[in-house]
Design a protein around this nucleic acid. Structure first.
Lengths: 278, 278
DNA sequence: GTTCCGCATGAATCGATAG
DNA sequence: ACTATCGATTCATGCGGAA
């Protein structure tokens, strides 16, 4: 199996040639149900779970026990209701043996416009975190963020009470020592990613902002680890992987999207091979 | 059935005395699984769905066809994984006849601190929107928010330029094409509520901020509409309902929480009756 | 070089109209 | 009756061109 290669084929074909337990991280944004009709034929919501389970089964085989699988997805509205296919998918993937370890949230700064009688504009998407084992690789130090402005005022004139251990009023047993923050300027983020979807002035339509795979690549891999994206699209995860000195494999069924990825990644010296499907 | 009354009893008892189709809005934050052990016996996650379905069935009976049910909930971590009881609950409530119309998101500004090897701090909760019918009451104008700063410079300049253009081209006969945004200062929000959880300096632990029920009360009811909270807790939804001149009924099983609500609402002239359970 | 302005467009959804 | 297509609605972002 050649790494640092992108394949213009169905991801199931690519994975057939992969060894068991060889991938450190899967970050992907598959075609949503009934979307991208022109490229993927528009999988109907009612058939989505069945379709995706064949893929997640193979992903589970090739993922290392210490690895993670991040799935960006959002259910659309069908007949006035949110469809339940994502909920069902989580439940079925657990039956396959996956652990639903966490659900991260992408809070979109610029949500799609619109006005409807029964709902507001949709401003968020799911980022489901699945793992094979309870213990897996996670490098939290790599995703620390600058401390908020609140600390500047808070720490400037630190009170006597703050220097002592401040017990929370609810008797939750959790206490905090504010003075520990002095000198620190980076803190751990939480499980909400607040960022805009990428602008579309470029030739490709990359709704997936680069910061998003970047966050998970930093959080769940170290350099030279191997990342796989079974639905590469315009190659956002690929690009970020190479930039962060990770190894990468990608699959993309659509010829058009594949070409966009190829062009986008062509400048990168890290990409070894392009494999075009005949 | 007395309105503007709070009841110190199980919500099923309160609802027994309610007529069919009498409530305009239910906003509630029920005890999460394995929480509040002393009060509700600590419902185990595996039994949560079964327990809640008896309540949601009665809620469906008493809610008007034009009404809405907002359920604030978040699955906790069990054995390293997010438990699936909320997902199952949504699926089962649909079988009961509820429509899962939308999922709003509470993005918490101040998420609870902590450090774990397999997850980051939890910064969000679900706000599930269920309805009985596809068409229901929704008053979007009541929840408009100030337009973003981006517009200030833009619109100011557009309008100035537009004025100049109109003056100089008065005789041209060319109709002016003023941007839709000029004069607009309030826009519709999206389905993510970004707000801090309430400080716990008070005697009760009110993680539920007042802005949260306020948003949904404004969005789904008008004045004198009837709101019901089956798990009143410290009475946040109750307080906001009265302040917004809505009618209210509340149930709270715990004597301690009931007392807190009673004290908190005692000052309100709108509360008609307190009903203490013997 | 900067800053400013104009514009295109994005994983959307609903209701009406047409076949 | 059921499906397919189309227009209306709406806001934040970044890019390119202009001042």
């Amino acid at each position: 199996m050649d790494i640092n290669t992108i394949y213009n084929e169905d991801c199931l074909e690519t994975m057939k040639r992969m060894e068991d337990n060889s991938i450190d991280l899967v970050v992907t944004s598959p075609p949503y149900a009934d979307r991208r009709k022109t490229t993927y034929g528009g999988i109907h919501p009612d058939n989505y779970v069945e379709w995706f389970l064949t893929i997640s089964d193979e992903l589970k085989r090739v993922l290392k026990p210490s690895g993670s699988f991040i799935l960006n997805i959002k259910e659309n509205v069908v007949d006035g209701e949110r469809h339940t296919y994502v909920l069902e998918l989580i439940i079925e993937m657990r039956k396959q043996g996956w652990l639903w370890t966490e659900e991260y949230m992408w809070h979109k700064k610029n949500s799609f416009p619109g006005y409807w009688p029964n709902r507001l504009r949709d401003g968020w998407e799911r980022l489901l975190h699945f793992t094979k084992e309870k213990k897996f690789n996670m490098y939290q130090d790599q995703v620390k963020v600058p401390i908020g402005d609140w600390s500047k005022n808070r720490l400037k004139n630190i009170s006597e009470k703050d220097k002592k251990r401040v017990e929370s009023e609810t008797n939750s047993g959790f206490g905090k020592n504010i003075s520990n923050w002095v000198g620190k300027d980076m803190v751990l983020p939480n499980n909400v990613l607040y960022m805009a979807s990428e602008s579309s002035n470029k030739s490709h339509s990359a709704a997936f902002p680069e910061k998003l795979p970047e966050f998970f690549i930093k959080l769940f891999t170290k350099e030279t680890d191997l990342i796989y994206d079974p639905f590469m699209g315009s190659g956002t995860t690929a690009k970020v992987s190479f930039e962060l000195n990770r190894n990468f494999i990608g699959s993309e069924l659509s010829k058009d999207y594949y070409k966009i990825s190829k062009e986008r990644l062509g400048k990168s010296k890290n990409v070894k091979k392009f494999f075009e499907w005949k």
